[in-house]
């Protein structure tokens, strides 16, 4: 399970490098970044970007609605797998964790954190963001969404051999991530993930489920990157179905206790 996830993450990481190179060779089958991607004749857009454009301009182009259909359907059926299976920033944070473990630096993890508080901060950030862009009149929320910044900057590096100033914001997010708050961007900041989680419904879709008695080893709680309790928070909007808890559960060897289920 984790192997498939790693392969998928690396595939998407390669995608943001390969697409600009293909475009340089004038092969336009793939085109775009993680804000908006074209595969052949199929357009896929980040719902955050499209909602910002609609919110500001009060104008709806049919292509916008068609292009956000696929991401939203995926979220409704499979949860926020974008974050766990594709986002290059999530891969980066996992890498940081691994390096920290190797260097024996302890993560500042407060395990008693309230899931509801996380969600309130997340939605608060999204709401303030929309208020700010409403005042400015410019869709700028992509600035605090790390995957968008990474993929667009990759295009700039490969095509024009230089950065633009968004890199500063990405670096400051990374510094906070490494030195101060554990998984800062994924848990509190990233507006892409927050907006996608609006389409996660409590009673429908792929969820982590806990059944029967377990040995209470709490390995799942220790492993969860988003600081959830998988036994209770399986259907939480914060959960992105990465499946780390399911793989870490030792009771699963004897009988199914923690597993994915389609509701």
């Amino acid at each position: 399970m984790q192997k498939i996830r790693k392969i998928s993450q690396i595939f998407f990481l390669l995608l943001i490098v390969v697409i600009p190179i293909l475009n340089l060779m004038e092969i336009y089958f793939f085109n775009g970044s993680f804000i908006s991607l074209t595969v052949g004749n199929l357009a896929i857009s980040d719902p955050l970007a499209v909602f910002q454009a609609i919110f500001l301009s009060h104008k709806i182009v049919p292509l916008m609605l068609i292009s956000i259909l696929i991401p939203i359907l995926i979220v409704i059926f499979f949860g926020r797998v974008w974050c766990s299976y594709a986002c290059p920033y999530f891969l980066m944070t996992e890498l940081i964790d691994k390096i920290k473990n190797k260097l024996n630096i302890k993560n500042i993890q407060n395990k008693n954190i309230n899931t509801n508080r996380q969600n309130i901060i997340r939605y608060g950030v999204l709401l303030t963001g929309f208020i700010i862009i409403g005042i400015l009149g410019v869709p700028l929320l992509y600035l605090i969404s790390p995957p968008s910044v990474i993929s667009t900057q990759m295009i700039m590096i490969i095509k024009h051999l230089r950065f633009t100033s968004e890199v500063i914001i990405l670096l400051s997010i990374l510094i906070v991530e490494i030195f101060f708050i554990y998984r800062f961007a994924c848990r509190y900041l990233c507006p892409t993930g927050t907006l996608l989680s609006l389409f996660q419904f409590k009673r429908f879709g792929l969820k982590v489920k806990h059944i029967g008695s377990c040995s209470e080893c709490n390995a799942c709680i220790k492993e969860c990157p988003l600081m959830l309790d998988p036994k209770i928070d399986g259907d939480s909007k914060q959960c992105n179905n990465c499946g780390i808890c399911v793989d870490s559960c030792k009771d699963n060897l004897k009988q199914k206790t923690l597993f994915f289920k389609m509701k």
């Binding site: 085109n31 970044s33 857009s45 970007a49 499209v50 910002q52 104008k59 869709p139 667009t152």
Partner: peptide, 8 residues
């Protein structure tokens, strides 16, 4: 207002 900075 419309440009979402996707770099396409």
């Amino acid at each position: 207002e419309l440009c979402v900075r996707c770099s396409k």
